[in-house]
Amino acid sequence: MTHMEELYRILRNSHVQAQGIVDTVSEPLLVLDETLRVQTANRAFFETFQVDRDETIGQPLHELGNGQWNIADLQRLLVEVIPRAAAIINYEVEHEFPALGRRTMLLTARRLHHPDSPSRLMLLSILDVTERYQRDAAREMLFDELRHRMKNLLSVTQSIARQTSTENRTAEEYRDDFLGRFEALVDAQDLAFSDQGEGALSALVERVLMPYTPQPDAIVVESGSAIRLAPQTLQSLSLVLHELATNAAKYGALSVKGGTVRIGWQLEDNPSQLHLRWAENGGPPVTPPEDTGFGTRLIRAAIAYSLGGNVEQDYAEGGLVTQIVIPLGEAHVSR
């Protein structure tokens, strides 16, 4: 074997080795010569950008795939920046590819010096981060929304703490009043993000009233229509049901043995509304309260202000009857 043949063999082998290395890299990789013609490309490049070997090797970069790599930012990077810097790492480029759509790529370019040759090769790796960026953005949005909800909830809790009356109340009484309302918030939170679906209102009624059931049959829940309510609506209703129940336990039908509360609701169309009825019976004689306490204001504001609904409280002889009507626009029904 001549020296010449030996040299060719080595070169061929090293070329095969180099190609092996290039193909092993999992992200798309191009080897460019100094005129920015493609010397080699790896499998990941062909697959990611849906091109084949013949239309790639030997072509100037800006003519590849009908000019889809003719990207001003990239040309500038390769022609102007690379000759002066040894490497550029993770340079972000956005580009519209005819077949792939808009992609975001991180480009890393590095000059290769061959000790025995003046030729300058360049490695260009292209990391397509479009999906990763989209996932990150979606996660960020979800995180923002959660943080927003959490801060709103803290804000509502703060408002309840500030508004729960301290007048003529011991610290212990204040605490119990506050915690009662706080638990109504917790119940609403639990149900708003659980899988209750259309049973959420039933589940809410059951949960909020459970502590107020002095004896079996004191509270009768008439099975109402199945309805899926938005978190905001559930939260308002939870606070309202809690106020009704705690008032009934203090002054109304649930304050005496044999008193009962009947709760029922139904959906109506045209306009779409939720009707909820709370009727007490068998309690002490009822009289309208002399001044509107926070509880009563809370009930009115929860229904009328936030939900655009209507509350009627009838202090009938047999017991308090509260009727609530809530319009069910798309904001109040969970989607």
Binding site: V156, S159, I160, Q163, Q232, L298, A301, A302, Y305
Partner: peptide
Amino acid sequence: EDEFMIALD
């Protein structure tokens, strides 16, 4: 403010 509790407060 749309949240009644916060508005009242």
